[in-house]
């Protein structure tokens, strides 16, 4: 136990000392089904930055979400993590980059358990050995948002659609920020997303409840019913509305589902109404870097993004 002595925050260039030429991109189930534009935009930006992307159809779901609802025991998730990360290590020798805080948090947490409990690592390796996999634990798990921040100067130079005057607020997501050790920014008052907005020409907005959980974290509507989730979200959106937030970004398709799809439902319970569109920060960067609007996938959103695009004058190009 070294809680008080260990650094919880790591400088970006210490966390990722060398910009990779090639990364393994971890598919997110929620991302590819709920907001397919997210993955597409993440790839668009990575390509612009000259980073080669490896994906593999043999990768499975990270299995973390239902685990954290106590939907099944931990053994399968430990083995699934060993299988996915072991496969990436063996086949490509690359680090894994996720674009979902869930995939990031669960892979990181389960990897931590595998790396610190030899008995679980052996259990997992014995099991996945039947298909020829082996998990060593010699690669890292990162989130692409960390690359966005590290390569911010390059991104800034490539902006072709500046987001001038747009009031954007961030939802960082607990499963990134609440990692105890080794995240990019201070868990209580992170600002690296706001720095990204500025680089894209937008105006960052801080609101009181910006750090508040999306409430989707575990089993929205399952393990915790609507009467827990909705008043919680209403508090968050009231506070965002007060500060005149015009757009909110996430780094997690799960958070995006909660914050975007829940807004129309909140009105029915007498909260709001709210109309703050919520998109992935990768989509935001792709927008500023000139990705064709129809390829960004805003039509997957429940709270329409069009008013913001109109305001910026982007709908006619």
């Amino acid at each position: 136990m070294s809680a008080m002595t260990q650094n919880r925050v790591v400088k970006a260039h210490e966390r990722i000392p060398e910009i990779p030429e090639k990364i393994f991109l971890f598919r997110s189930c929620t991302g590819s089904m709920e907001y397919p534009g997210t993955e597409h935009c993440v790839e668009f930006v990575l390509k612009k930055l000259g980073i080669e992307i490896i994906k593999d159809a043999d990768q499975s779901c990270c299995s973390g979400y239902i685990l954290t609802c106590s939907g099944y025991p931990a053994e399968p998730s430990l083995a699934v993590t060993a299988r996915n990360l072991g496969m990436v290590e063996q086949r490509y020798g690359l680090d894994t980059y996720t674009f979902c805080n869930g995939c990031f948090g669960y892979n990181t947490e389960l990897k931590h358990i595998l790396d610190h409990h030899p008995e679980y690592k052996k259990m997992a390796n014995d099991l996945i050995g039947q298909w020829g996999y082996h998990y060593e634990g010699n690669s890292h798990v990162y989130h692409v948002q960390e690359l966005w921040y590290l390569l911010l100067d390059r991104i800034k130079e490539m902006v072709v659609r500046p987001l001038t005057g747009l009031r954007i607020a961030s939802h960082y997501g607990c499963h990134y920020l609440a990692q105890q050790y080794g995240i990019l920014d201070e868990g209580d008052l992170p600002t690296f997303h706001e720095e990204i907005y500025e680089a894209l020409g937008a105006t960052p907005v801080f609101f009181k409840e910006r750090r508040m959980c999306c409430a989707y974290a575990v089993g929205r509507g399952f393990t915790h019913p609507e009467n827990v989730v909705q008043p919680h979200l209403a508090r968050k959106f009231d506070s965002a509305k007060e500060e005149g937030v015009e757009l909110m970004t996430t780094t997690c398709p799960g958070c995006n589902v909660a914050l975007d799809r829940e807004q129309p439902k909140l009105a029915k319970r007498g909260f709001g109404p709210y109309d703050i569109p919520v998109i992935d920060i990768g989509q935001l960067i792709a927008l500023a870097l000139g990705a064709p609007i129809e390829e960004i996938g805003f039509n997957a959103n429940s709270t329409p993004v069009e008013p913001v695009l109109k305001k910026l004058g982007f709908l006619n190009d």
Binding site: C29, E39, S60, P76, E295
Partner: peptide, 27 residues
């Protein structure tokens, strides 16, 4: 509509092994 394959690419191998892990761990 955004120009990607209609369904995410998940191999039969991934699905079979994912399911087998859940079977074999007693989950």
């Amino acid at each position: 509509g955004i120009g990607v394959e209609p369904w995410p690419k998940v191999s039969e191998k991934a699905i079979a092994e994912y399911g087998a892990i859940f079977e074999q761990t007693g989950a």
